[in-house]
Amino acid sequence: MTTVSVQNVAKSFGTIPVLHDIDAVFPQGTFTSLLGPSGSGKTTLLRIIAGFVAPDQGEVTIGEKDVTGIPVWGRNIGMMFQSYALFPHMTVARNVAFGLERRGIKGAEAQKAVAEALDMVHLSDFGDRMPKNLSGGQQQRVALARAMVIKPSVLLLDEPLSALDRRLRQEMQVELLRIQRQTGLTTIFVTHDQEEALTLSDRIAILDKGRIVQSGAPEDIYENPQTRFAAEFLGDSNFLTGVVEAGGVRLPDGTLIQTTATLHANGQKATLAIRPEKMSPTPLEGATNHVAAKILTVIYAGPALSYLLQTPDGTRLKLFQANRDGTLMREGDSITLHWSPAHSIPVQN
């Protein structure tokens, strides 16, 4: 419905800068996750878009409209909070009707809209209950219905699922995605859970220390991280550092690691990121890169096996394998890891 964009936004609290020069576009109908560690400024950015925090500089536009100077109540946003934030003195139905009343929608029309919204979140029979008589998951669904019933221009969610247990969280993720797809609502979702971000999003923006370090489709970021931080924060990664030489990277121990990506000029330092599941302890077709390593620890997690390894020069590596036949390598085994040049991704430090 609406494209949201943030231009050149910066914010400091007192003397502490929290956001620097944020430029981001949230295209119409997409589900974007703001992903980053605690304190990276995700909530602050979301609250600037919502209007709870005024940026020190820059602009926020929702649709065609520059909303930088418009207060929260004039922005037509749907918002969901981690603490549900239902009005405890109103029934579920009155909670949902609250935003409609503010828009002058009353009587039968409002009742119909409330019933539809509650139906959408499968809580049709709960209209007369008080919020305190609902489970956490149900409360969160009421909050979703309340946010959606006003047909907002954009849906803003600040870690809305992190108070729920794992099972319920997965259910709500599916629900949220279904409703978002149905309505085609531009959605911005703050999370520090990379798995959640990967499952839900069309796009991910990774924040670090108040900057967006990389944004794009989840698979783009995952397969081609541009910085060491992005590679580590979204998924796991191994890093090998050396000097650029002959289209590859020469490690201190003399091994030449090949990559299909373009590198800096010869003689400069470079770091390569290799995803742990892209490595293999057995030679593969086309896997021309290899390093020797010794197994330090074996972690058995049912369907997946993780190994922590160490190369002769002391670099720590990880290896993930699917548990295909139940045979484990042992701690102390020396193995050789193989991977293809296409999986060596040069990253900035």
């Binding site: 709870f52 929260v72 749907g78 239902l86 009005f87």
Partner: peptide, 15 residues
Amino acid sequence: IDDAIIEAAQSLGAR
């Protein structure tokens, strides 16, 4: 009263 409750009301259009 949780701040989020007031913020939720604001986001729904309450002055």
